[in-house]
Write a protein that binds this DNA or RNA. Structure first.
Length: 603
RNA sequence: GGGGACGUAGCUCAAUUGGUUAGAGUACCGGCCUGUCACGCCGGUGGUUGCGGGUUCGAGUCCCGUCGUCCUCGCCA
């Protein structure tokens, strides 16, 4: 196996170069053994007569000692790939390196072979200093050599393996679904793949395996899961890539509770097996309505209080015309009590008001209660009984700060929800424990003001709580769906729903979304037909694995847990994808570019 | 698509108000050194200041455009 092309570089070409141990495993018990190590030259220290090499592989770093006969014969550079053989020796006590697991031994080499040379690395592999993402992504194979990065991907592998094991224990079956599939009208922008065989027709990459997993339920698979790659052609973010991985699952003959218990068990076992963590189960559950009323958002961070308080009763009878009129119009007045232990200066409150206005509020009414009545814009209206009533409503004490917003319900929720998050961040409350929660009973539909039509809040295959969907002329804004999210510390980890297993209900939902009978047949005919062949009641869920793995390592950017991520402009700096293709290649798939040649070659 | 920040040596950064030959650390190359592990010491190479244009006696610095990276809003059923 010794490559003859490198034999000129070697000292003992007849010897087998393959390793007997990794660079992370030699300890005192191996002292005296003859070993061969393979790895990368991590660092060199030349002391004239004695030459030290830190040899690195995935498992660790072992110090190799070369005498002058070897170090003079073979010239090493950083990141050369080498094979060394020699004897394991114990270090003198004063030479032990306590910072390394292998620090009690050396390998004294009598054979050294260069398996592969390296150009000067674009950046040091043992860097303490941050290297720009641009450079790291261009030389991703060098970046991935860094022990910290290898740790991330080993963790990811262990984590997903533990999750797969947990599903297998519960009798789930992993089934692969197509990557080349059918474009869907709703949802994110599709990636399209032109068909060579069918001129003018296109496949789409799946945004998720949604319809296939439902079809698998119709097929009687009963319990399906998959580590599934999903594709959405939307703009990228720190926590969003064009292609991402979901742990996708679906179950038959179940309701919400079964999904929740299954996932609680899976996550408990995953964190236990992959990380030795004891995640408390079951997770608390709250309705979407409760989440919005208490936290102003549908992904509440439960690690701190600062909950929203409804002030309608107080505002209805107060002397502050703005609040009174707001309630009279049927809108909302709500507040947050910031306890005295987190005092806010006038300047800080002004900053919060500015933030509130930037997210749509007309103003931020505040009050600092004191025995004399207090200060702030609201203090005029809080004298005597009115002040006592407001205190009672909020549980407010002297020294607290009360922040109030009035307006339409959606605006009040959004503004106070944002303020709450900002305050949590400001007072450094968003830290520590892992607080999972299920959020259930989302609205079925949302009205889009721009397009003037109804959209599914989750997706069009989500079952309504009321199968009759409110009868003949339903108020769509009040219909409740059986969709649910899993939320962790203010992040949406995943979502799912009980599905529609009745063809008639599915058709009704499509109609509400403005998808007529003809389009239904063309786009979703296979689903409607499948639902007409004895579809079992079923429900499912999917969780974003990139985010979950990042989060489990305390990272807020998924690029360090994705091996080959794309930049914010959706480019791969290593391969230079996307890139132009030859005209012949386009012709073969019946495509002609309408982009002027002048802007086709940016680089 | 909008807003913001940034772009100087292989890497990480500096360069006063627009003013001499654009510097430092590190890496790399050469030399010395037998116990280092961020080795040390001596010497050296290395620059289209992202790119294009403009203002100016003079531009890394100011202006316009463009490309790229990051953050963010829109978007992400």
């Amino acid at each position: 196996m010794t490559p003859s092309s490198t034999s000129a570089l070697t000292t003992h070409t007849k010897t087998d170069w393959r390793r007997t141990h990794t660079c992370g495993e030699l300890r005192k018990p191996e002292v005296g053994s003859r070993v061969t190590l393979n790895g990368w030259v991590h660092a060199r220290r030349d002391h004239g007569g004695v030459y030290f090499v830190d040899l690195r592989d995935r498992y660790g770093i072992t110090q190799v000692v070369l005498g002058p006969e070897l170090s003079d014969a073979v010239k090493l550079g950083p990141e050369f790939t080498i094979s060394v053989s020699g004897r394991v020796v114990a270090r003198e006590p004063h030479n032990v390196n306590p910072n390394r697991p292998t620090g009690e031994i050396d390998v004294v080499a009598d054979r050294l072979e260069i398996l592969s040379r390296s150009n000067t690395p674009p950046f040091p592999i043992d860097a303490d200093e941050e290297v720009s993402f641009e450079t790291r992504l261009k030389y991703r194979y060098m970046d991935l050599r860094r022990p910290a990065m290898q740790k991330n991907f080993i963790h990811r592998s262990r984590f997903i393996h533990a999750m797969r094991r947990a599903f297998e224990r519960q009798n789930f079956v992993e089934v692969e679904t197509p990557i080349l599939t059918k474009a869907t009208p709703e949802g994110a922008r599709d990636f399209l793949v032109p068909s060579r065989v069918h001129p003018g027709e296109f496949y789409a990459l799946p945004q998720s395996p949604q319809l296939f997993k439902q079809i698998l339920m119709v097929a009687g698979m009963d319990r399906y899961y998959q580590v599934a790659r999903c594709f959405r052609d939307e703009d990228l973010r720190a926590d969003r890539q064009l292609e991402f991985t979901q742990l996708d699952m679906e179950m038959s003959f179940v309701e919400e509770d079964d999904i929740f218990r299954t996932w609680e068990q899976v996550l408990h076992e995953t964190f236990r097996d992959a990380m030795g963590l004891d995640v408390a189960i079951p997770f608390p559950r709250m309705s979407w309505k409760e989440a919005m009323e208490r936290f102003g958002v549908d992904k509440p961070d439960l690690r701190y209080g600062l909950e929203l308080v409804d002030l309608a009763d107080w505002a209805r009878t107060c002397e502050f015309a703005v609040f009174k009129d707001t309630i009279a119009r049927g809108e909302r007045v709500m507040g947050i009590r910031v306890p005295a232990q987190h005092p806010l200066t006038r300047k800080e409150i002004d900053g919060l008001e500015e933030q509130a206005k930037s997210t749509g509020a007309k103003g931020l009414a505040w009050w600092k209660p004191t025995a004399e009545g207090g200060s702030g814009p609201l203090s005029k209206f809080t004298t005597g009984a009115a002040g006592l009533a407001l205190r009672a409503r909020l549980g407010a004490q002297d020294g607290d700060t009360v922040l109030c917003v009035a307006g339409k319900q959606s605006l009040v929720w959004r503004v106070l929800g944002d303020l709450r998050v900002a305050l949590g961040k400001k007072f450094d409350l968003a830290k520590g424990e892992w607080r999972f929660t299920w959020v259930t009973s989302f609205p079925m539909f949302e009205f889009d003001e721009t397009e003037k039509r109804w959209f599914s809040a989750h997706h069009p295959f989500t079952a309504p709580v009321d199968w009759s969907m409110g009868g003949e002329a339903p108020d769509l804004s009040t219909l409740v769906s059986r969709a649910y999210d899993l939320v962790l510390n203010g992040w949406e980890l995943g979502s799912g729903s009980v599905r529609i297993h009745r063809s008639d209900v599915q058709q009704k939902v499509f109609s509400i979304l403005g998808i007529g009978p003809e389009e239904q047949k063309q786009k979703f005919g296979f689903l409607l037909e499948a639902l007409s062949f004895g579809a079992p009641p079923h429900a499912g869920f999917a969780i974003g694995l990139d985010r979950l793995c990042a989060m489990s390592l305390g990272m807020d950017n998924i690029r360090d847990i994705v091996a080959f991520p794309k930049t914010a402009s959706a480019a791969c700096l290593m391969t230079d994808a996307p890139s132009p293709v030859a005209p012949e290649q386009l012709a073969e798939v019946h495509i002609r570019s309408v982009v002027p040649p002048s802007i086709q070659q940016p680089s």
